[in-house]
Design a protein around this nucleic acid. Sequence first.
DNA 1: GAGGATTTAGACAAGGTTGTCCAAAATGGC
DNA 2: GCCATTTTGGACAACCTTGTCTAAATCCTC
Lengths: 226, 226
Amino acid sequence: MMEKKCSEILRRGHAEKRRSVIDAAAVVFCREGFAGANIDLIAAEAGVSRQTIYNHHGDKDKLFATVLRDIIERMNVRAFAILDTFPNQPDDLEADLVAFALRFNKNCIWGQEGKLVRKMLVAEGERYPELFEMWRKEGPGKIESALAARLARLAHSGYLDIDDPDVAARQFMALNDAELNLPSTFGKSLSDEEVLVAVRRAVRTFLRAFGRPAGSPLAAAATQEA
Amino acid sequence: MMEKKCSEILRRGHAEKRRSVIDAAAVVFCREGFAGANIDLIAAEAGVSRQTIYNHHGDKDKLFATVLRDIIERMNVRAFAILDTFPNQPDDLEADLVAFALRFNKNCIWGQEGKLVRKMLVAEGERYPELFEMWRKEGPGKIESALAARLARLAHSGYLDIDDPDVAARQFMALNDAELNLPSTFGKSLSDEEVLVAVRRAVRTFLRAFGRPAGSPLAAAATQEA
DNA sequence: GAGGATTTAGACAAGGTTGTCCAAAATGGC
DNA sequence: GCCATTTTGGACAACCTTGTCTAAATCCTC
């Protein structure tokens, strides 16, 4: 009862330690897996005593869940921010899609956090099914749905020719993964150059499948209306 | 020196135990991760005493490496066998590609072993970098290269319009993964129906990007030659 | 600076794991 | 049935990990 008075005021360094523990735990859980990660390692990595971890998070299981929730939330915020930069009125469709995909890939998929989420998901997905189910629904689910809406809009404006926007969105993502999935799964961190080449190929194929012949004739009509 | 005489003859049940240990270890390593798997569990799952495991494989690390090598080899054999059923002279290109992709996906990618390899790869890739590097080169590397050759042949015969067969091969694979990757990463096992739908969509998009307009005019010429 | 809360280092018990050892039992070829 | 080999179950030491507890050091606000 009384400890709250100060735990809400005294958290200058408190919050910093909390964050540093979560960050360190993320790194160690990711590298070693749940069973392989030990609290002492996390404490050392965080520059914090073991007891502090127990004070803050109570339990290895609770810590893991906290770390997951934290990363998932950060990833989601980031992903939706980038989704807002989707080219709704493209000047040069191919170039704009490449730029968008590049942003998305570099920040959400192949960054440190992206790898972390994917690895944890695969390795420990069955340990916290509800948590990952939540992530799938709120993360990839909504992102793909939002991307599908943007693609549908481009199709409506005559830039694209799409039957099922949801399928197109998933395939857009998949094509972007095509070249990078394997190298990235190993320790290999991808160079900007590699990502750019992969994204260019992905967008080119995507437009071969879903693009309008050339210069998007309907686009002119759409812009005239607006 | 003398123990060889019989260890080479007496392995009727020997080989069976060996296999059952490897199979059980694969399951347990996959479910629990390297650190989380314990030898007693594997022994129980294999219906074998713990000592037998140590007799056969010496060490947890060695056992893990053996399991990996075994699965990788089996997967490779299976994958190349299916690759040999690629439709080189397609009757109905779309239907034939769908059938081929269906075979490949069901047997190599989304089967029990496929999931196993992927999970171990992601979870423990940094524990045995050489081993996984070998796998990448001998497995996906060669498979994609072989698939690229088949696609190039179809392109040469006028069925497809492909600039870079290697890229097309990777994208063919990626499109097939598009819809199934996420559901499968969770415990969810995929129904035949789901896989079929996903593969149909993948092939349709692939042909929208790389197919010839209709009925592949050049194909007629090619078959006349042959 | 004073005072209350937090953090720290270290010790600690409880429990689990690995890998070894050994004697008894089972196995398979001769 | 005999024999060498393998398998078994159990005991075992060494080690590691989790989570708790303590007293001393540190931090933050006033």
